[in-house]
Design a protein around this nucleic acid. Structure first.
Length: 490
RNA sequence: GGAGAGGUGGCAGAGUGGUCGAAUGCGCCGGAUUCGAAAUCCGGUUUACGGUUCCGCCGUAACGUGGGUUCGAAUCCCACCCUCUCCGCCA
């Protein structure tokens, strides 16, 4: 989340920046109107509260002295109703501002090249030379066709984008994960973690997956009870929506909640109102807002970074380096038809994640360090790669600067992403209130960084394809042999 | 799943309707004492937002979360979340 101060003091400037870098149009006029209203309402609210407090205190003092306070009581009786109305309006305005703000992406650093898509990314390094093959190159699907890499079995169990690994390929996969973790822990100074794969909506919000990118996630309801919604209740709700009647909508929604034994909403959140504008997804929307739920992490970044949510750490202890090997789950909703062959793009995959928590003065250097840490894995595996500085339009929502590392895939005769290292600056920290105490004793938001170190499934593919032999076996990279009882071939 | 206890400032811990943003202790910062240190003594020590005659002051909010009662809520009521103990079940 951007600093709300930007919307107050530098709105146009911020909007311009987002337009040129992200190609995004900020609703400047709306924000301005809301801000003016917010300010007026806040002052009004606070004045009412102050007068309420004064009178209440006076009553208390008189009563403790045994004096009469009847006149004050009649005077005070009118205040609560008026105050409640003002408070409610203020809450709504603040909610609407937050609704906009939490959907605005981070502003790229000035060193980030401008561009709309990957064609504007800049290559900063190229390491290793792709091997020359004196036989027809097979892709990983063909190399795993003996059953080592079984997409058909995966599909039978779960559907498309799932793969079963077997035998030496499964072991190679495991060896890769072990190797990466060992390098980062023993040579790069990261603290090994094993983290929850299921996290709360709050955690997803903290790293920026929610509220905007829920469709990319797997959502898990508590229990197996279905949310059955009475048809009459649904059509009544549709009716209220058509009439644009918020009061009715809220009471109908709460009626449905009560029928299902779920807790009622105290007021109609702006986000729910907006979701309800899509009547075709009514049931799903109600489910999401009324049902308690968890999410499968799309990356261990979510779990690792959120360890610092609502924490205040000592500035002297930064930067902190954390790593975890974890499963990752992605719905890949926007990638239909892309990378359907092989295990490049799966709903479930493994990754060794790197996270750093840094002071603002450190984060730029730490991004370079972390990217180098990820590259080290590929260097040790002797896989050719190139490092790309992503352009402004190709970066993720929370990032201020991102390097992608792309590994050489001979079957595709190109480099494919195997790691992404980002500096999110205070964007995530602000959402999750992750802070440190600086030298003067004041609290300040930390900077958060995350990077893949690296994607295990894609590393497996890269090893298979780059290390293939004429007879279709895989030579084992020397750094992995200790993990495979010294085996030379897999 | 059943029974019970509890969630308060960096930590510990008091506070059961009114001058409580909150006693006390620890920690931390500054000062005194000392050749220096320890001990001791004195003072200070939450965060966010708003206002301002802006480096000072004024106001508002926050005692797990969200509602409610009340002129007034950390304190009373309701719902939920979380933690701990015991029992049951379980990888």
């Amino acid at each position: 989340m951007l600093d709300p101060i930007l919307l107050r003091n530098a709105l146009q400037e911020t909007a311009d920046k987002l337009a040129t870098t992200r190609g995004l149009t900020l609703p400047v006029a709306d924000i301005e109107t809301l801000e003016i209203e917010r300010k007026a309402l806040q002052i009004e609210t606070q004045e009412l509260q102050a007068s309420r407090n004064r009178v209440a205190k006076e009553i208390g003092q008189r009563k403790s002295k045994g004096e009469d306070a009847k006149d004050l009581l009649t005077l005070a009786a009118a205040v609560p109703e008026k105050l409640k109305a003002t408070e409610d309006r203020l809450t709504e305005i603040q909610e609407r501002l937050l609704h906009i703000l939490e959907r605005v992406p981070n502003i790229p650093q000035s060193s980030v090249p401008l561009g709309n898509d990957e064609s504007a990314n800049v290559e900063v390094r190229r390491v290793g030379t792709p091997r020359q093959f004196d036989f027809p190159v097979k892709d990983h699907v063909e190399l795993g066709a003996d059953g080592g890499l079984d997409a058909e079995a995966g599909a039978r169990l779960s559907g498309s984008r799932f793969t079963v690994l077997r035998g030496s390929i499964a072991r190679l996969h495991r060896a890769l994960a072990q190797f990466m973790l060992d390098v980062h822990v023993n040579e790069h100074g990261y603290l090994e973690h094993n983290v929850p794969l299921l996290v709360s909506p709050a955690s997803m919000h903290g790293t920026g997956q929610l509220p905007k990118f829920g469709e990319d996630l797997f959502e898990v309801p508590y229990g197996t009870r279905l949310l059955a919604i009475d048809g009459n209740a649904l059509s009544a709700l549709r009716n209220a929506l058509m009439r644009n009647d918020k009061t009715d909508t809220l009471s109908l929604v709460n009626g449905i909640a009560a029928d299902a034994g779920l807790k009622a909403l105290p007021r109609l959140p702006i986000g729910l109102w907006e979701d309800l504008q899509h009547p075709e997804a009514l049931v799903a929307t109600l489910h999401r807002w009324l049902w308690r739920r968890m999410y499968l992490i799309p990356t261990a970044e979510v779990s690792l970074t959120n360890l610092y949510a609502d924490q205040i750490v000592d500035g002297e202890s930064l930067p902190q380096r954390l790593t975890a090997h974890s499963l990752c789950f992605r719905a890949e909703a926007g990638a239909a038809g892309r990378d359907t062959r092989g295990m490049i793009r799966q709903h479930q995959f493994e990754k060794v994640e790197l996270v750093q928590i840094a002071r603002p003065d450190q984060s730029e250097a730490q991004l370079e360090e972390m990217t180098a840490h990820a590259e080290t894995i590929l260097r040790k595996l002797e896989l050719p790669f190139r490092t790309m500085l992503l352009c402004s339009g190709d970066m993720g929502f929370a990032s201020a600067k991102t390097y992608d590392i792309e590994v050489w895939l001979p079957s595709q005769n190109t480099y494919r992403e195997i790691s992404s290292c980002s500096n999110c600056e205070a964007f995530q920290a602000r959402r999750m209130q992750a802070r440190f105490r600086n030298a003067t004793g004041k609290t300040e938001l930390v900077h958060t960084l995350n990077g893949s170190g690296v994607a295990v499934g894609r590393a497996l593919i890269a090893v298979m394809e780059n290390y293939q032999t004429a007879d279709g076996s895989i030579r084992v990279p020397s750094v992995l042999r200790p993990y495979l009882r010294g085996a030379e071939f897999a």
